[in-house]
Design a protein around this nucleic acid. Structure first.
Lengths: 270, 270
DNA sequence: AATTGAGTTCTGAATAATGGAACTATCGGG
DNA sequence: CCCGATAGTTCCATTATTCAGAACTCAATT
């Protein structure tokens, strides 16, 4: 199982200067509960939320009332079903995903491996879509997942599309966790970004999970409102280094197709 | 393409007596935007939200700031990526889903058809999980989807587990849309519910989509904090009426296994 | 240049959130 | 059975946010 990262988008998320008032406070709670490994009791939340008991109680009540949280039989709080409902709609109609979909399928056909579309959010990559071969594998298990940016092909590809100031801001806000022997550090990451900018391709050589490699290429809109990447991922025994090189170009081509689709689909304000 | 229902959980959702203050108002907006077929301009939202311009502007600003909404290049509002992030976590750790998973897989193996786990939320069914055969079909396209309760096997199974008062409340709050020639009306639904209670199985005989049939059975926790169902779904040419009968028992067995798993997993307040 | 439409900013007044304390319920000993 | 904890809920005067509407900016239209 791929390590899920709990603590990556710390500062970028919270320390945004602007305030969102009541909503912001509630979202902090929602994050606490959804990030927990298992449902939390009132007191558990109280300990980390740093709010007076009365206040917390009302806030959790409101979140529950709205279906964003759920109270289990034993009183513990878990994420609510409304989230699934909201997300499924948000996913189904996502413009970028819709534009990319046919190109992702084509790339999957060509390579026979799993193809991903990911997008940068804060200091994480969120997988927007995934096209697999024939195996009946759990799909939701990836889509929507937030993954670290410094050890996934899509993440590094996305970073390479950013201007230096935003790149620096992100790199310094992330804490680098070591997943495998090959996981990058801030310094090696910077060097790699330079390579990616030159070649147009990012690679993941078992940097996140042993035995998993990928080739990726950046996909972004002109105004950088969308910054992400496409990738082809597979097991190391099939994705030899030659294979990775061989697919570098098709992946880049796919990225370009998606980008030109975005210009058509989003350019004219219909 | 299966019809997606926009307008089903009207009253139950909104007319809940309790107020959630600021959060409630913001969630209404979020619903408006996520329910829209395409991104909405400020003025579009203004028209349906019934809020003063200034107020709406700030509210949308807050939602955007939190990543729940996104502002596209042309200023239109679309659902934000944070929703995916929240939902993926909420799904991955959902207790009921985790308990049901192995049983769903077993049922899929046995029947070779697609197996669903759904749960009642308000007056809709939300699909919590789906196990398919070999076809590489889009999974997210179902999970999280809210479907009508009166014309899906899982929906009818779930209803049959409810006490009469809650059943009545739901039936009267839903507006029955006619999807196919076989779609039920409030009256025929009530009659069917009675059948389901007797036999333990719900069927969908092309009531939602022509050519699609299913057998389902109710799954619920003792305290009715979870009310849902499992189903086996497939094309009419494979799921003959004899087949449906043949699988009625295995589906019921699966439902029972899940329920006993829930008693073990949820009973003792660990 | 004048008009309309779309979006943003500002303000005192209205409303909802806050936090502390008091209250209740449940549990584990002694 | 009672005591003291621990856990969760309710209350209410105070305070901070949100509200509504008007005034304002900016662009496109005529």
């Amino acid at each position: 199982m791929g390590a899920t990262d709990g603590d990556i988008m710390d500062k970028n998320e919270a320390a945004d200067k602007r305030e969102t008032g009541t909503l912001g406070k509630l979202m902090v709670l929602l994050d606490i509960v959804t990030h927990a490994d298992s449902p939390m009791r009132f007191t558990d939340i109280l300990a980390v939320a740093g709010q007076p008991r009365g206040t917390l109680h009302r806030q959790l009540g409101h979140l529950t009332e709205e279906g964003l949280l759920e109270v289990l039989a034993d009183g513990r709080y878990a994420p609510g079903l409304r989230l699934l409902d909201l997300a499924s709609r948000s996913w189904a109609r996502n413009e970028f995903r819709l534009i990319a979909e046919p190109h992702l399928n084509a790339l999957q056909q060509l390579t026979g491996e799993t193809v991903h579309l990911g997008v940068l959010r804060g200091a994480s990559v969120i997988y927007l879509d995934k096209v697999e071969g024939s195996q009946p594998v759990r799909m939701y298990s990836q889509i929507g997942n937030a993954s670290p940016i410094y050890c996934t092909g899509v993440g590094k590809a996305a970073l390479s599309a950013l201007p230096d100031d935003r790149l620096d801001a992100i790199i310094s806000s992330v804490l680098f966790q070591r997943f495998t022997d090959s996981t990058l550090t801030p310094e090696t990451l910077r060097r790699e970004i330079a390579d990616i900018r030159r070649s147009g391709n990012a690679f993941d050589r078992e940097e996140h999970e042993v035995g998993i490699r990928c080739v990726a290429a950046p996909v972004c809109s002109e105004d950088l409102s969308f910054v992400g990447g496409v990738s082809v991922t597979g097991p190391a025994y099939r994705l030899t280094f030659e294979r990775l090189e061989e697919w570098a170009l098709p992946v880049r081509r796919t990225a370009e197709s998606i980008m030109s689709g975005m210009r058509i689909g989003l350019g004219p304000r219909r």
